[in-house]
Amino acid sequence: MRLSLNVSLSYNDVPLLERPRAAAAAGFEAIEIWWPFSCPDPPRDDIAALASAIRSAGVKLALLNLYGGNLGAGDRGILSHPRSTEHFYANLSAAIRLAEQTGCRTLNALYGNRNMDKTEGASDELALRHLAAAARAAADIGAFVVVESLNSVECPTYPLVTPDAVAALVQRVRGASGAEIGYLCDVYHLACMGLDPASIIRKFGEMIRHIQVADFPGRGIPGSGSIRFAEVTAALKAAEFTGFIGVECRGSEQLSRQALVGLMSLA
């Protein structure tokens, strides 16, 4: 089981550049991270410093989020926002630079909340163009883009809240870009929507390129809520999933990788 620890949600009391080493000390071979800078196009030295910290810790960067706007204020991506096109392309260049320096091969692109000033069709076409551009840029370094479904309870204006919606978008982007793009399957968001994660994995296994786990409710560690993680693990094995499982839950920094593997198999 290949686990990557999300160091944006874990180790918040530790400086960013020290988090990769903290994850390695807990036994993790890989980490993942939301866009770690306050702006879409940070100084090159800041990117180089983070890449150096990741390499020095001996961990892989399994997943990197593209710039999502102000997440704390409720933003959930900029792909579909006309006024953010310049920021999108600047961030794409910066993200590709960080991915190249760390060997990261999976870029997560958050779609963006609905812009009430624009029609849905115009927003969707813009997002399609941006995703196609991101997929082609990622392909140039041997990487690929993923898109995830969130949930309508916590993200009421986010348009991609079901796996079917993401699957339809993935097919459109594949056709438009000719590049690889996949589905990031977050079992917490599925549970928030009343969906059974194991069933979704069985249905969309071919399209899934990355998994994220947290229990529901509360986004706690596996076993703290209602998700049947033994069934999730069995579905992943049946789908012959070989990618990373991202640990994106509260309290994960209190457990070792070995403990989390046990919880995933038994919870």
Rank of each mutant, 00 (worst) to 15 (best):
S4A: 15
L9P: 00
Y11A: 13
Y11P: 08
N12H: 03
E18A: 15
R19P: 10
R19L: 05
A22M: 13
A25V: 03
G27I: 12
E29K: 14
E32H: 06
E32F: 04
I33Y: 07
W34N: 15
P36N: 12
S38T: 15
R44Q: 13
A48Y: 03
L50C: 11
A51N: 11
S52D: 12
S52I: 00
I54L: 08
V59L: 12
V59A: 13
K60M: 12
Y67I: 11
G68T: 03
N70I: 04
G72Q: 08
G72M: 07
A73L: 10
D75G: 03
I78Q: 02
I78C: 02
T85Q: 13
H87F: 12
L92R: 02
S93D: 14
A99M: 15
T102A: 10
R105H: 12
L107M: 14
L107P: 00
A109S: 11
Y111G: 10
L126V: 07
L131G: 08
R136W: 09
R136M: 12
A139R: 14
D140A: 15
I141K: 08
I141N: 04
G142L: 12
G142A: 09
V146S: 06
V146D: 02
V146L: 07
S149Q: 14
N151P: 10
C155P: 00
T157N: 12
P159D: 11
P159M: 10
L160M: 14
L160R: 03
V161C: 14
V161N: 10
A165S: 14
A168C: 02
L169G: 03
G175C: 04
G178L: 04
E180R: 15
C185N: 13
Y188E: 01
A191L: 05
G194L: 00
G194W: 00
G205A: 04
E206Y: 07
I211F: 01
G218D: 10
R219W: 09
G220C: 06
I221K: 00
F229Q: 02
A234V: 01
A239F: 05
E240K: 15
E240L: 10
F241W: 10
F241C: 09
C249A: 12
C249E: 01
R250D: 09
G251V: 08
S252T: 02
S252C: 12
R257P: 00
L260Y: 02
L260C: 09
L263M: 14
A267W: 05
